[in-house]
């Protein structure tokens, strides 16, 4: 699916990166623990999170992610949006909670990265 599909499925608002909504996404992850994202995530292009600070943007950038979805209508600061803009990342915010947001995307065919192997 594309980032635009994610936006529609989650009823999300685009906060920046609107020019990249047509990018294709094959997997996603959801976490409030950036340590875990850095440790276990592999090739997921979307991060769903309820955590709001600059390190969320940097973590996603380090992982070469294309899009961050803030759940529960969380609003990142302008500084965070500016950071995301620098790397061309799309930032979305959805009123849905984490569990529901992940469930909707998963049931529409967006997979995670399977189970941990070591």
């Amino acid at each position: 699916m594309t980032i635009n599909d994610i936006k529609d499925l989650l009823g999300a608002q685009v906060l920046c990166g609107g020019e990249n909504l047509d990018k294709e996404i094959h997997s996603a992850c959801g976490s409030d623990m950036m340590s875990d994202v850095l440790a276990y995530v592999k090739e997921q292009a979307v991060l769903m999170t309820g955590l709001v600070n600059a390190q969320v943007i940097r973590t996603a950038e380090m992982m070469d992610m294309l899009c961050i979805v803030f759940v529960r209508s969380k609003q990142p600061s302008q500084d965070m949006i500016d950071l995301a803009k620098e790397s061309g990342m799309v930032i979305l915010t959805t009123p849905k909670r984490m569990y529901e947001a992940c469930g909707i995307l998963y049931s529409n065919g967006l997979k995670g990265n399977g189970e941990l192997h070591g």
Partner: peptide, 23 residues
């Protein structure tokens, strides 16, 4: 993995899970 001496406030920022050095 999982060993951390980071204070609790660091965990609320999304870090301090004891994954840094192993990672």
């Amino acid at each position: 993995e999982g060993f951390s001496t980071a204070p609790d406030n660091v965990r609320s920022l999304g870090f301090g899970a004891g994954m840094g050095l192993p990672n």
